[in-house]
Nucleic acid binder design. Structure first.
Lengths: 215, 215
DNA sequence: CCTGGTTTTTAGTGCATGCTAAATTAGTTT
DNA sequence: AAACTAATTTAGCATGCACTAAAAACCAGG
């Protein structure tokens, strides 16, 4: 009885991401993140609380319980394995894999998950540079600094690009700014910053460089 | 407005399969096939009729319209491509691919569908021997005779094995009775029939041989 | 052609998930 | 501390899709 629905999985995943480094999440935050009305979020949170997947007391915000976090990490693992699989084995363009994974993550069986992981060589990172949780529910969480924090003249390796905007991602991909790429910060400009990458020199708008993190 | 839901897709697929070679399908048939109450089926049929996906007049049964058939074939294509992909590229055991595909078929984008088809070399058959509809919605439908119709002494090629029972399928797979396998009918026995396959001789129970078709 | 049995449909419900509008609580400002 | 504002919750309702029970239509045997 009461299996975790796909919608619930989305809530758990969103809460997981929002609560990182914070001590609680508010109703309006998930509502905004998931694009639903605040009342709908309240409703679902109460349902998740009844299932002991989030700890909640009204008007005070909430966090995942261990059980909730376990499910969230499982879904995130699905998501990131699918992204990587689609990119590597089927050549799906990077800016598309996020939205494909968003739908597939809810129907991936443990069996197929395991086989995909094996086919990929048990990877630890998805194509955006995000860590893939292990099947035991462990994830090392590293937070890389934004590209703009790199001092002029310094070199860095792209560690992460945002998965939120397909258009942005496509532009970054075309410029070669993807996880693993080595670049050198040349300096800040009025509307962004100038970097050198693979011998080419380019200016990244503020919007673009905001979505790149380096190591 | 009114996108075709996953549940609707299941109804369309079921109607497609039931109406093969018949001139109409009854409420109780889909209800049985989908494991829902007759009233639920009536309800959904009326909804599909409003969307012009089935032609329906009450108490008289129904059939798919061209638009409905197009969607049904698209889902069947998804299903069979996924089955084949899982079997060939991820090594998922044959008796499992049907149920995996049953969930994934509803979330496969055209993009990923096309890439899977390419990776598989635009196949025309799934691992059970069922034909895969083309992306333009064409499917050649061949109906093969049951194994038991093979005359004693005659040779045949396994063309199709049923996808309905995982347990049966596992047994067939273990015996090597899979699409493409060449076998020779030795004769009927009281409880099934005896065949020779790859030099080995085996007796297939009636239940088993019922789910095998030959060419 | 009527009557009993089967199939189908209608009516009324329940649950998951969403919404808006109204009520409540929290937090901030004077 | 009172009062205003912003966030949250409650109340009431809609839609998709299932169910059961009752009514209606169809079909077959007499």
């Amino acid at each position: 009885m009461s299996a975790i629905s796909g919608v619930m999985q989305d809530y758990l995943k969103a809460i997981y991401k929002l609560q990182q480094g914070r001590d609680s999440v508010s109703t309006s935050e998930i509502a905004a993140r998931l694009g639903v009305a605040a009342a709908s979020a309240t409703n679902m949170i109460k349902r998740l609380a009844r299932l002991r997947l989030v700890a909640y007391s009204r008007y005070q915000g909430f966090v995942l319980t261990l059980a909730g976090e376990k499910i969230a990490l499982e879904i995130i693992r699905h998501h990131r394995l699918i992204e990587l699989y689609l990119a590597q084995h089927l050549g799906v363009p990077l800016e598309q894999v996020h939205w494909e994974a968003e739908r597939m993550e809810h129907v991936l069986s443990d069996e197929v998950e395991a086989r995909m992981a094996t086919a990929l060589g048990n990877p630890v990172q998805d194509p955006h540079g995000d860590p893939i949780p292990a099947s035991d529910g462990t994830m090392r969480d590293v937070r890389y600094p934004k590209l703009e924090t790199l001092a002029p003249g310094a070199r860095g390796v792209v560690a992460h690009v945002s998965d939120q905007s397909p258009a942005l991602l496509r532009r970054l991909a075309r410029l070669g700014v993807l996880p693993g790429a080595v670049l050198k910060m040349l300096g800040r400009r009025r509307d962004g910053c100038e970097v050198e990458i693979e011998g080419r020199r380019l200016t990244l708008s503020h919007t673009l460089s905001e979505s790149v993190r380096v190591q």
